[in-house]
């Protein structure tokens, strides 16, 4: 049995407008897993990921990450260290436009920078080499000097993965990483996520929509519905019946299996 990397206990999140995004979510993530969270838009998937690294403040509950209770942390320096270890990628990539790809990737090192260094954009040769290595890992090293806004969607997401890797994370949170990509690019990005999961041993938690992708890449699946976990299991355990229960009656998988 692998080591438990993350344990979420009775996590709830209620927004200021009264919307209950998460209700008593319990979750355990083992070291090295590729966990996929599925569920309708608005089911609380994104909120869950953002509570883990405290981009959102949980209303109640506990989050244990490598033995530390993230949800109780008061010191912003501790929270920042947790964020560094839980890198995150996003649906809309969230690169900094008008900056070079290399610079975007090196921003993964900001947590260790002094104010002076970050003000002048001082990065060491070693950090530059690491950034290039990570770009090479996602097969896009030749784009290093190009401006980030000139890349295609798939390339942007790969740069975002490289930026995440530069943080030297133990866990990668992927919030709908392929939702704004075309089907072909989708697989390229997912393949890279699997590569860093299997070769670098970085645990991945990803929000996904397409069942075909879930079956292909996930080692374990959790389904959220209205802020509650309604399914836990292996990807091949999601039957048609479960699928309808998660996504509502009459739902059909939008992505065909030949995707």
């Amino acid at each position: 049995m692998a080591e438990v990397l993350l344990r979420v206990e009775k996590l709830s999140k209620t927004y200021a407008n009264g919307v209950q995004a998460l209700k008593n979510v319990d979750l355990e993530v083992q070291q090295g897993e590729f966990l996929v969270i599925i569920g309708l838009s608005g089911s609380g998937k994104s909120t869950l990921l953002r509570c883990l690294n405290r981009l959102q403040e949980p209303t109640s509950g506990n989050i244990f990450f490598q033995g530390q209770d993230v949800s109780q942390m008061q010191d912003v320096r501790d929270i920042r260290e947790v964020r560094r270890q839980m890198a995150m990628i996003f649906q809309h990539f969230n690169l900094i436009p008008r900056q070079s790809v290399l610079k975007n990737v090196m921003m993964g090192r900001l947590a260790d920078k002094t104010l002076w260094q970050s003000f002048w954009g001082i990065f060491s040769a070693e950090e530059k080499r690491q950034a290039l290595d990570n770009l090479r890992l996602v097969g896009i090293a030749e784009k290093a000097p190009v401006r980030a806004d000139q890349l295609s969607g798939g390339q942007k997401q790969r740069v975002a993965i490289a930026r995440a890797l530069t943080q030297k994370p133990t866990l990668l949170l992927a919030d709908e990483p392929v939702s704004s990509l075309d089907p072909a690019t989708c697989h390229v990005v997912m393949d890279y996520l699997r590569k860093i999961n299997q070769e670098l041993g970085i645990t991945v938690i990803a929000n996904l929509h397409f069942l075909s992708l879930v079956r292909k890449y996930a080692t374990r699946v959790v389904a959220l519905k209205d802020g509650e976990i309604v399914f836990r299991g292996r990807p091949d355990e999601i039957t048609e019946e479960w699928f309808r229960r998660i996504y509502g009656e009459g739902a059909q998988d939008v992505a065909p299996n030949d995707l």
Partner: peptide, 25 residues
């Protein structure tokens, strides 16, 4: 908001976030 969130999630502090995510925009 996206880039702000991204820079925050790297573990950057408030001033770094302003300098790297907002100023270029």
């Amino acid at each position: 908001e996206g880039p702000i969130e991204a820079i925050e999630s790297t573990g950057a502090n408030k001033l770094q976030t302003i300098w790297y995510a907002i100023v270029p925009q």
